[in-house]
Design a protein around this nucleic acid. Structure first.
Length: 425
RNA sequence: GGAGAGGUGGCAGAGUGGUUGAAUGCGGCGGUCUUGAAAACCGUUUGGCGCGUCCGCGCCACGGGGGUUCGAAUCCCUCCCUCUCCGCCA
């Protein structure tokens, strides 16, 4: 949610920001409602002040034995007027709130302006020593390889649940678990995060807090009977840990990392990149979440990307960093880097991580604030998060990059102590 | 699933229609005293909104929402949550 005061004071900046993000320019409507709202509040507060003043006199009048009937009558009229204004105000508040909830965050000034993914910018890439985009033998894609080695079974996953629900078997299941444990340990030991194991069903307030609702409602699973949503990312429960809280300055920056399965309906995306692991309804992800002071958040964003990169370097997997342009930026994000790993079978880069700074956008929705040392004022924190990383796409790159001409898969050095074996097949 | 109890300030805990945004205690912060500390004593200590922005003034909030009333923490309705007991399941 954007700050209404900021919109009031910088309408043109907001207009431009919304245009750059490819969103509807509703600034005019917002300003109109805002003005109406403030006018009614001023009017109403005056009436309430009168009512309070008279009310406090009534016990005194009664004590003196004076007649209160005429006062009551007048105050009844005032009361009715207040009720009317209250109603009007509620309607305006609802309307304004609804519009603001549908208004996306604005991009940071360092984000390139662009319409679509075409205009994203590659910031840097990292390739393992001796790496080549050309291979001397035919690389099997992760589906064939998974089948051949009997470590991934998409058919049976489909039988159990439906398409997009992967089944890992044997060394595949172990490798997946090893990846998760490796990444968690890495962030805990080398990057100073605190581990979180959150609930994976959350209520509607939590989904609203991080901005998945209302915009992405159709992409979420929903358990109607209990009003709970299976999380699309650990960002939701972990960011909501501090919903409706006031943090103290000296505990910031808070850095959490947690593993959860993630659930996405991916409505309407069938056919495109939907085979195997490329688009799934359930996947595993290790997520990093930060709560930072506003002045620190962009530095923390760079750190977040670096933390995710460290994992890939430790695994020796080729990747590149993409800075998303304004048009490709998600609803809540002010700035976002994608990390894409190389798939030699697909011959393309696959998004394995997304690291974003939401500035105060989520904090305002979720009411997450902090207080500076010695200050009475509260401010909204900046929230950030990034996958560190999602295992499904990472698994694709890993299986493909580490396969041998014989169709076996070598386990990366860093994972061997977690798997207990060095080669699959 | 059945029965009961309860949701008040950072915490504990009063308050059952009228200067109660809220007693009291603890905690926190500031001060006095002290060589220093403790103790004691004094003071202070919620958040949001609107107007003016130097000082300030006003409004709202006692789980959420609605209602009764001149006036609600207090009465009524409704929803949510927590706890205890029983049953059921893991």
């Amino acid at each position: 949610m954007l700050d209404i005061k900021f919109i009031r004071e910088n309408p043109d900046l907001v207009r431009k920001g919304l245009r750059d993000k490819g969103a509807v320019d509703n600034v005019e409507k917002i300003l109109e409602l805002d003005e109406k709202r403030r006018k009614i509040i001023a009017q109403n507060d005056e009436l309430k002040a009168l009512r309070n003043k008279v009310s406090s006199q009534i016990p005194i009048l009664k004590k003196k034995g004076e007649d209160t009937a005429s006062v009551f009558e007048e105050m009844k009229r005032v009361g009715d007027e207040i009720a009317e204004l209250d109603n009007e105000l509620r309607k305006i508040d609802d309307e304004l709130e609804e519009i603001l909830r549908w208004t996306p965050n604005l991009a940071h000034e360092s984000v390139p302006v662009g319409k679509s993914a075409e205009e994203n910018v590659e910031v840097r890439r990292w390739l393992p020593e001796g790496f080549s985009f050309e291979n001397d033998f035919e690389i099997l894609d992760h589906i064939e390889l998974g089948k051949k080695l009997d470590i991934l079974d998409f058919e049976r996953g489909t039988k159990i649940s439906g398409s997009g629900f992967p089944l890992y078997k044997g060394a595949g299941a172990t490798l997946e678990r090893a990846l998760i444990n490796f990444m968690l340990d890495f962030h805990l030991q080398k990057h100073g995060y605190k581990e979180i194991l959150p609930p994976i069903l959350v209520n509607r307030d939590s989904m609203k807090g991080t901005g998945q609702i209302p915009k992405l409602e159709e992409d979420m699973y929903f358990i109607e009977k209990d009003g709970l949503y299976p999380i699309p990312t650990a960002e939701v429960p972990i960011t909501n840990i501090h919903r409706n809280e006031v943090l103290s300055e000296n505990e910031l920056t808070i850095k959490y990392v947690g593993y959860t399965p993630c659930f996405r309906r991916e409505a309407g995306s069938y056919g495109k990149e939907s085979k195997g692991f490329l688009r799934v309804h359930q996947f595993n992800k290790v997520e990093m979440v930060k709560f930072a002071k506003p002045e620190d958040s962009y530095e923390e964003l760079e750190g977040l990307v670096k933390d995710a990169e460290d994992i890939l370097q430790a695994l020796n997997i080729p990747y590149r960093i993409i800075l998303l342009c304004t048009g490709d930026l998600s609803f809540s994000a002010a700035k976002c880097y994608d990390i894409e790993t190389w798939s030699p079978a697909e011959k393309k880069w696959l998004e394995a991580s997304s690291c974003s700074n939401f500035e105060a956008f989520q904090a305002r929705r979720a009411n997450i604030r902090f207080k500076r040392e010695g200050s009475k004022k509260t401010e909204f924190v900046h929230t950030l998060n990034g996958s560190g990383l999602a295992t499904s796409r990472l698994m694709v790159s890993l299986l493909e990059n580490y396969q041998t001409p014989e169709g076996k898969v070598i386990v990366p050095k860093a994972l061997q102590k977690y798997t207990g074996f060095e080669i699959i097949g």
